[in-house]
């Protein structure tokens, strides 16, 4: 058997920290950030029955982080009585988006075709975003399951972005930028985002400039949103584990630096 190296002990330590904190199943009290509150207020303030377009612009690998965020936002929208049109501009997000919308629609007894429709995937995201600005039925003549656009009562009055209250981009990469650059800039539809934490610094300047109306990100964002909705979920369950993991990483950085300087001093003296 291969001898364990120091990195193996670091991984093992992180695994033990996360495992123990998750088995404890303790909910950490969290404070809602202004960014999450803004996103919540945006969806909450829309008139009942508003049509929102939800775009699943992420890959399968981001699901553990994106799913709690997406579920919170979908639950909020359905709870407020909004109508949802689902699309996907990344092939991998297509099936995941359909499952998430179906799952949350079932919780609130929403009827497919009247309260939600999932239009599925369209390639060439820039062309798809621009094309929907001209005509959504021409861009998506059928829904995800191949039924004609004209069959659904929800879509009777939805021709382009003028008939949509806003776009929510659920993304793990840069696709939200294209919604901002094309849908918001050209068609003036409000764009909001639920993104993986790794993308938050990318989108912060768009929040400051007002190009992105609101944003919620990462597992922490999901936990905050769940708190606002007064529901339990993966976000809140994972907060103790995440906080402990961060403290562990900080401890490892400090320990690594102490070891480095001690070794360097020893080398200089010798």
């Amino acid at each position: 058997m291969k001898k364990l190296e120091s990195r193996h002990y670091v991984f093992l330590g992180l695994f033990v920290v996360i495992l123990l904190t998750m088995l404890l199943n303790v909910r950490l009290e969290i404070r809602v950030s202004p960014e999450t509150q803004k996103m919540y207020n945006y969806i909450d303030s829309l008139p009942e029955g508003s049509v929102l377009m939800v775009s699943f612009d992420h890959e399968a690998s981001a699901v553990p982080e994106i799913k709690p965020l997406a579920l919170s936002i979908l639950r909020h929208a359905f709870k407020k009585g909004h109508k949802l049109i689902g699309v996907s501009l990344l092939a991998e997000g297509t099936g995941i988006g359909y499952r998430l919308m179906q799952e949350t629609a079932g919780e609130y007894n929403k009827v497919y075709g009247r309260d939600l429709v999932y239009l599925g995937f369209k390639p060439q995201y820039i062309a798809a975003i621009l094309s929907m600005g001209e005509s959504i039925p021409e861009t998506f003549p059928e829904d995800y399951l191949g039924r004609p656009y004209t069959q659904f009562p929800l879509l009777d009055s939805v021709k382009n972005y003028d008939n949509v209250a806003g776009v929510i981009s659920i993304a793990d990469g840069s696709l939200t930028t294209h919604w901002i650059e094309y849908a918001h800039a050209r068609y003036h539809v409000p764009v909001t985002a639920a993104v993986a934490a790794v993308m938050m610094t990318t989108y912060d300047p768009y929040i400051s400039s007002g190009q992105l109306h609101a944003m919620v990100g990462g597992l922490r964002g999901a936990a905050e949103y769940e708190k606002l909705l007064k529901i339990g979920g993966s976000g809140r369950r994972g907060m103790l584990a995440q906080t402990s993991a961060h403290l562990y990483v900080i401890a490892m950085i400090i320990a690594g630096n102490i070891v480095y300087f001690l070794r360097r001093n020893k080398r200089v003296k010798s």
Partner: peptide, 23 residues
């Protein structure tokens, strides 16, 4: 530094999500 910290946070979230699924 902020971007890297968010990256660490994101990867931790992914691992925690997977651990939750396993457990």
């Amino acid at each position: 530094g902020t971007t890297f910290a968010y990256t660490v946070m994101s990867r931790m979230s992914t691992f925690i999500g997977r651990m939750e699924f396993l457990l």
